[in-house]
Amino acid sequence: MNKTHWMVRLVQIAAVLFVLFGCLMVFIYTPFYSKLIVKSLNYFVPVEVDQLAAQSQKMGALSDDDSFEPGSDLWIARQAYLKLMEQAIQSDEPQDLTVIQARYKALQQLIEEENQKENDQKDRPKVPLLNTQVVSASEAEVDNPAQKMKDLLEMNSAENKGLMTQYTEFLKTHEIEQPASEAEPIDDETYHDLAKMDLAKTNGQSVKQPTAEPYAIVVLGGGLTLDKNDKDIIVNDYTRLRLETTLDVERQHKLPIVLSGVEAPYMQAWLKNYDVDAKLLEDRSMNTCENSRFSSLLLQKKGGAPTVILITDQYHMPRTRRLFALNGIETIPVVAPMPTTLTTWRPSEKNYDHSRRANYELLATLRDVWFGSSDCREVP
């Protein structure tokens, strides 16, 4: 039997590799490649919530209302709360955050009760005082409104300092019955309502029932572009489609909206055109890792959100859900459409757009799982 020359053998191997590469390229241009990648990512990427990090979100007393009047008791209590929250976050002791949140909720209730009592007293008829001409020295010192406002905001007045100290001590020492109570489980009726809106549908992915009701809607930016005049900056098609999805979700679930990414101010302006006011902006993140980390810190400072509705595209979703889970937040995925649609079966350049996006997320997920994200800052 004649032995095949090594040059012939080499040509045969090269031909086989060329044919396989050609088949792969054709497959990449079909709709089946990107679907396979998405299905694999949804199956293999873990989204179990890190329980230690989750302690910082357990209370779920989320609020996007910062309209407290400067100098009011509630405003001073808010400053004391944010100061302690920041100290707890920097001390790497997330278990303390739930205690602070519970105490802050109790403090707000006490202040509101006291304010109500004072309002009731004001409604009663008053007897005019004698010697109304007497003006105390402290009242005479408020002639300069600019200095008064500066003292107010910097907590320079003795009264504000005293309240700040009192509220800080309350937040440090007040005893509460359930310092780390679990979020209330979501009931079946609410879950079915969510399912009707495809909140638990991710391109065929089976998503388990969330353990708690969502407290916020988190929308990740997908990029910016120039307007037709080549001057004005606007959201690109990826971001626009995510915002359109946000409108549908917001109509049925009146929840605070968190806009995450440097695109956040432009996203906020886009939503305002549709009479939707997104107050929580996380506009410092430059990548997905920072999206999840900085958004979780923002939610911590606003009171906590153990479960959120997450809006992004189907390729970005698995990696993003994993990163939010590592930061202690359970996510209910809502898939926003891509700018291009897949064909039914034939190879197409539009299909390649999806395949390229799938390849990027596949490689980024492998990097995050094996090596971590090296360009992810710790704090904004």
Rank of each mutant, 00 (worst) to 15 (best):
K35Q: 04
L36N: 04
I37W: 06
I37P: 04
I37G: 02
K39A: 04
S40E: 07
Y43S: 05
Y43N: 02
F44D: 04
V45T: 01
V45P: 02
E48G: 02
D50C: 08
Q51M: 08
A54N: 01
S56G: 14
Q57N: 06
K58G: 06
G60V: 01
S63W: 03
S63F: 02
D65M: 04
E69V: 00
E69T: 06
E69F: 00
S72G: 02
D73L: 03
A77F: 01
A77K: 04
A77R: 01
Q79T: 14
Y81N: 11
L84D: 13
M85E: 15
I89R: 15
Q90H: 07
T98H: 03
T98A: 13
V99M: 09
V99P: 08
I100V: 12
I100W: 07
Q101P: 05
Q101A: 09
R103M: 05
R103E: 06
Y104E: 15
K105L: 08
A106S: 08
L107G: 02
L110M: 09
L110R: 11
L110Y: 04
L110T: 08
L110E: 10
I111M: 01
E112G: 02
E113K: 15
E113G: 13
E114S: 11
E114G: 06
K117N: 02
N119M: 12
D120L: 08
K122I: 14
R124F: 06
P125R: 04
L129S: 14
N131G: 10
N131H: 12
N131A: 13
Q133N: 13
V134D: 09
V134W: 05
A137T: 00
S138N: 09
E139F: 13
A140C: 00
D143C: 10
N144I: 09
P145I: 14
Q147S: 12
K148R: 15
K150I: 14
D151N: 14
D151T: 13
